[in-house]
Each structure stands twice: as structure tokens, then as C-alpha cells.
Design a protein around this nucleic acid. Sequence first.
DNA 1: GAGCACTGC
Length: 711
Amino acid sequence: MATEVPKNSEGTPKWKNNHSHSNGNLPQNMRRQIISQQRKSLPIASVEKRLLEEVRKHDILIIVGETGSGKTTQLPQFLCNGGFCRDGKVIGITQPRRVAAVTVAKRVAEECDVELGQKVGYSIRFDDTTSASTRIKYLTDGLLLREALLDPLLSRYSVVVVDEAHERTVHTDVLLGLLKDVQKARSLERRKDTNGVTLKEENNVQNRVSLKPCEGSKISPLKLIIMSASLDARGFSEYFGGARAVHIQGRQYPVDILYTHNAEPDYVDAALITIFQIHMSEGPGDILVFLTGQEEIESVEKLIQERVQKLPKTSQTLKVVPIFSSLPSEKQMLVFQTAPPGFQKVILATNIAETSVTIPGIKYVIDPGLVKARSYNHRTGMESLIITPISKAQALQRSGRAGREGPGKCFRLYQESEFAKLADSTTPEIKRCNLSNVILQLKALGVDDIMGFDFMEKPSRTAIANSLEQLLLLGALTDDYKLSDPVGSQMARLPLDPIYSKALIVASEFRCLEEMLIAVSMLSVESMFYTPRDKMQEARDARKCFTSVDGDHLTLVSVYRASAECLEKSRLAGSKEKKAEKTLNKWCRDNFINSRSLKHARDIHSQIRGHVEQMGLHISSCGDDMLQFRRCLAASFFLNAALKQHDGSYRALASSQTVQIHPSSVLFRAKPECIVYNELIRTNHNYIRNITRIDPLWLPELAPQYYASQN
DNA sequence: GAGCACTGC
């Protein structure tokens, strides 16, 4: 299952698709022949009939398929040929990642010899290629969740295949619980249709059944297929009431796993030594090193360059390439270039190389066994980034990266006894994140009893209670914790963090919705600014013209408007869309702005604007009245207010935690008396980011329900 | 004085 990709609409890099790399320029009939041969040689091909029988016999099937089994591309075709697309029904296959949905759909369309968007298509946020004739639909799991808001019984689907379920993203976990419900509801509905009986069932099933989506459409049973990489089939099977699990062989070359004899006190140093050992005494083949973050990668890169100088001239043949998510895409692309003749490529990567990006040519993997992971403290509402040991499943995934094209070697920079101590699998994300959004979605889907919802792994009571409380404070819920109308249902419709959705509603009252639309779009993307270490001053100077003394929100609005102006100018000058985009990209480079992030923000902006218009909110601008906008920010983000203390640190009013302004904020030096912020994250300190200065008197005035009794 | 990875009708 290659998930490697290419420049899609957002400007993420165009990565090579493993499957079709050799078929590109061949005549059509030859290409067809090759594809047909490739399909037949897949491990899954020999079990087509058996699989179809299993799906017919069981409403829920767990498929454990190793890497290279062909399950993602082949199973939907088997199902379609086996009659599961009759009566216009659709087979939906969910993926945790957009790139995967896109590449796999393209490959399957090619295999079926149809145009993408006809029988086979994909649907991801901002990019839907499906049509009325689409029968095999690849989509992100988040998007299927969104679809469920409109069509609670997912009535167009005859089969839903949840792929990569072992990754246990929040979306996957919520989807699993929901699908279980939908399946029950649909069989109930059918029995009602045929016998006229109503059965009492638990879990909101009744609730959802009453929401009949498509009038007159015949409800068919829903088949569920959960696909996962090995290790954890039992968990899924138990969750689905002892569901049948089948195993499909993979096709992966053997990878030698090597451990260190002794514990390594300094994994960075150990990684460096290992890189040079491989370079000097192993055969050719590229090296992939897993590191924890940008800073570490940049320092290791420097250290390698230094040490290479000390090697004999003939051995100075290492080519180092870094890759991490915030790296601009043109730089990310460099990992796909083959090293110059005689050179060995060393890729220094974060977790991005574990699943998201597949780099060809890797023969050696160096794995220090660590990952920087996000965790969330439900009590304080604080996120943190902590370096923690990986799980066994992750270690396996990493080592597998060495065996995609031939036998490989994986150097684990820890002892075998340490491996045994690792957790089997990574803690599911749902246990590690703020649940406000999940809860809002579930409420909108008619699930009122969150504690009673059948999560595969239930979040803690505190986690649920705190998020319910937050939603209550934002006005999304009524006093008895039901979705409020219109605020709650409007918020649920918007694909944003609930606090941002609320900010839009507040802004429409403050007559600055135009500014807020820009602000929340910009706040919803990662790393708008790109600051390479060696050009820090240059980057700072370039951004000066956007800086607002009022804070980061207004600064972001300026950046957005300047970029829009640049695009507009280019269009007015008669540039074609492509040329205009190029001009914008250059503008981004000149201003040290991440063009991928900006594009993303622009996409979000247009999507959200559409929603907001549909809801009938009043879109107007406050013009030059920045006071009005800041008051609106205070009214929206009152839960995140902080006051300066004597020592220049801040006290967050809601939690009484001591926090500091993040150095990336334009207010880092100014340190105003009172501020609101949007992000609280613990790294070396408790940092707050995206900050605007406000007047402390505004808080009791604009959020009296929260601040009246205090002070 | 500093930024794991994904994702959204």
C-alpha cells in the first residue's frame, strides 16, 4: 500500500507513486497487461473468492493485512465485482491521510481502466473528485464523519472499509463507534420496514433511526470491514463482539534487526556513530534516521558535515537531507532525489517518514526508539510536547521502512531488553487530546450520552467532563448538556476548533466577521512563518511590515490581506491562475512565509466563508476600528485571558497557571498588562502563542457570566 | 528566545 504522493492541490510535495513508476510511458495495451500481472501477483489475489464469502457471511470482518498485501487497492474491486455496488450503492474506504486517499484512488482507477471520478474516485477536504457514478470511493475518515452529520445512516454506502485502523486516530476511533451504531440502526430500520416492528435498543440507536435521511431510499444492511496491520486484531475483534478476523500475507523483504549491547546514554551521538559505521563498512543503500524534531535534525546535520570532513577524501561521499513537516515543500522534495553517483544518502527525518512519506531506496534504518509526542492534560487544558519511547508497533513500522525494495537492516539504538519493555502499541490519540470537538460532533449526531457511547477505548471521565464544561461555557450546550440551538448546531457545522467557531458567531455580532474569518483561518494552520536558523534576522526584517502592536491576530490578518493583494495584483495584470500562484509563492519566499500553510489557510477561509454565508451570519468588516476587533477577540477568547505579573510572566486567569509569551509572538518583548491567547503548550516552559493585548476591564464587561464574580 | 505527525459536508 504505497501512500507516497505528489503535489496535490495544497502544494504538498509531488512524491513518486511506487506502484506505477515503471508504467508511465508505455503503450496502453502493454500498460494494461503489466497492471493485470501486477494485480495477479499480489498476495491478496489468491484469496479473492474466500474473502468475498467471508464478507457475505459476516456483517463485520476484521482483515489483518501486512504491508504489501494489496488489501487497500484490491479488496474494494473484489467487492464491487462481487455485487456490492448494485442499486447505486457505494463502497467507502476510509484513510487517515489525504495523500493516501488520493494516490490509492488514482491507482485503482488506473487498474479498473476508468477515468478518476467515474467508477472510482476520492473525496477529501477541499478536493472531491467523486460523481454520481462513483462506486468505489476513497475518503478520509474525518470526511466520512462529516458526511454522517448530513446522512446519519450513511445510506449511500453498502460497505464501509476502515483502513489503517491500527493507527487509531481520533477520527478512526469515533468512526468505529459510530459505524457500530449505524449498522445496528440500519438492520433495525430494515426489520421495521419488513415487519413493522419497533425494537428498543440502547445507545441512541432509536434516536438516529428516527432521522431518516433519504426519503424513499431503501435501507440495505451495512457491511463493515476493519483493516489493520498485524499485532492488534484481537482488540478490534473483541470490540466488535468477537468479529471474524482473517489474515492476509504481506510482501516485504526481510529486515535484520540489530540492538546495541549496552545502553546508549546519548542517542544523538550513537546515531552519528552508526551512520558513519554504515557508511564505512556496510554496502551501498540509503540510510533513514528517525529523530525527534527540527532542532535535533538541524544539529545532527551540522555534526555530520563536520565529521565528514575528517574522513579520507574518497569516503567524503555522504549526502544529508532533512525532512520534517514544517520544512517548505520544495525542500522536502529533496529527499526524493537520488544521491550523486557514488554517494550515500542519509535522510534525517521526524515521524513524517514513519507513515506519511515513503522514501524509495532505503536499505538502512537507524531508530533511537524515541518520538516527540503531543499529550494533553485534561485538568489544566495544557498541551505538551514530550519526547517519549515509541511503542513496539512503531518500532516495527520504522524497521519495515528498510525492507520495501530489498533486504535491509535496522539498527535500534537500545538494548533488546528495552524493546521488550515498550508498550505494544501507541496510546490512541483519543486519550491524548482535547475532546471538545469530538463531543460537539457526537452531540450533533444525536449521541447525547457521551459517557455511554461505545468507544473502543473510553476517554477518562475527567476528560469528558472538562470538555463538556468548556462547551457549556462557550454556549454550545444548554444547562442540561444538550446541543443548543442555534449556537451549538451552528458550531457543529463548522469544521473548526469549537472556540474558533464560536468566535465567528461572536464576530458577526461585533460586525467584524470578515476579520475574524481571516484570523481563525490563519490560526487553524500550522507554522505560517518559516524561520531557518541561518536566516533568522533576514526573516524577522521581512516580516516587520506585517507586525501589529496589538498582537499576533492582527499581524496574521495583515499577512493574509497582503497575500491576497499580491494575488489580486497579479491577476489584474492578466496573469493566468498558475502564474499568479507562482507570483504568490515567490512573495511567500521573500517574506519567509510558508506557502503551503498560506494555501491551506486560504482554502479554509473560502470553505468557512461558504458555511458562514449559508448560516446567514452577517459578514461585515470593522474597517480601521481595531479596537472593535480586539474587543471581539476578548469576547471570544475570554477563557484564555492572562494578566502580567511582576516578573514579566503571566497568570492565566482560568487555571491560575503561570505562563510565558512564546518567543515567536510579536508581543514577546512588549509584554502588555492583559492579553488573550489561543494556544497553551508546554515544552521547556508553559508557552502561550497567538496573543492580542486587551483591556482587563473588557473581561467583566464582555464575559460577565464568567468574570463578574471574580475580582 | 523556539516549532512531533495527521485531519475536517
